[in-house]
Nucleic acid binder design. Sequence first.
RNA 1: GUGGGUGUAGCUCAGCUGGUUAGAGCACCAGGUUGUGGCCCUGGUGGCCGAGGGUUCAAAUCCCUUCACCCACCCCA
Length: 425
Amino acid sequence: MTGSGQDSGLQRLAGMADLLPLESKRWVAAEAIVRATMRQYGFGEIRCPIMEPTELFERGTGTATDIVQKEMYTFTDRGDRSVTLRPEGTPSVVRAFLEESLGAKRPSWKLFYIGPMFRAERPQQGRLRQFHQFGAELIGPAAPEADVELIALGDAMLRNLDVPVPRLVINSIGDKQARADHDAALRDYLTAPAAFARLCADCRRRTQTNPLRVFDCKNEQCQEVIAAAPMIDRFLTDEDRHHFDAVRAGLDRLRIGYEIDSRLVRGLDYYTRTTFEFKAAGLGAQDAVCGGGRYDGLVEVLGGPPTPAVGFAAGFERILAVSKLPVDEDRLDVFVCALGDAAFELTSQILAALRQLGLSADRDFLRRGLKAQMKEADRLRARSVLIIGDDEIAKRRFTLRRMDKAEQREIDAEPSQWTVDEFRK
RNA sequence: GUGGGUGUAGCUCAGCUGGUUAGAGCACCAGGUUGUGGCCCUGGUGGCCGAGGGUUCAAAUCCCUUCACCCACCCCA
């Protein structure tokens, strides 16, 4: 991980990671669970390019977001076009939805994706520059039941992935207008001389940059000030409230526990009404493991007809960091030990015959001594070892050693006489 | 982008206020068992001490720069 091995003068880029076989096994196992769960909930996989026109994110994710303002990997390609490594998946899905005219084919689509995302942030625990997400999008339905479906999917997914007791936090943030009005009201409240004077230095700055953050300040005085501040729900329409109530009722019916956090604002411009986040313990400051919400305006922003939608994205690295998923160790069925040139050459055919039987089989390629080959077989946790030397070739009988029982016997050298069980059982 | 911490063998780490051949455990290789693993014993390979520059008679040790990692802020998956 530190890259402190051989110094070839080449290092991987900051915030990017190599995954070695031991670790990649966990990933493949987790990905299989994600795909199986998605299928169970009726979502089909969509694979989009990891590079898109920069404009897609500027318009989709939103120019006001931190992501677009300071975190994108943006380049000029050979045709002088500005391209960007995707910082999130949703804009690509919506772009594809429009480009492939999906809305004209069916009124409702359930899509999921899984793959790398790129954000040029300062790396720290649970945050890489190339990281991996899976996400689900339900495009078409405006009903609160759709929101419930997505949250239920996220909940099931985290349980299937053995993430210990994730906490669900939900909120309703209304539409763009409501958020703007709330933001303005909050600024007015906080910058009024009496209130402003009691805020800490950080919070005074926050009144300019992100007034909502004052809610999270640990400073006691700031908490006193913010206690009476205007909350978002004051700016919601009746329809917004009904929608939120229906989402909550839906979650209650499914017995999915949640907390309402009226300060939960997500960092993307396009969210409307419902936002939610699953937080896991043990991740330090980056505890959001899955986050999403409704984005009724996004399709239109990207040039399509008004189309409601809900979705979420979940972080693979963070999930794996806390997941209790067991990974079963690989065991090799047969390791073939060859002694001498004749046996060494014969081994390829022996392997082919063993593999033909459906067994996993391997050998040594370094012409090492028997002891070294046995050690290798042990490292690979071989169930059995087939020993082939001059004696065996002459007798047309091979030695078969069962490693666990430390027993061995002779078997016919003719592969057509072999059965799977005598090697693996 | 800002702040703090760390960077010595493949891995985890010792190395006191600068001093001569840089150590341990594990891993790896070999021998003990001239054709047999896991345990044990013995030996061995392996490090321009992250990189570059500076101070000094002398630097892994002090200073600067840079790169990377870690943690936090910001924000998010």
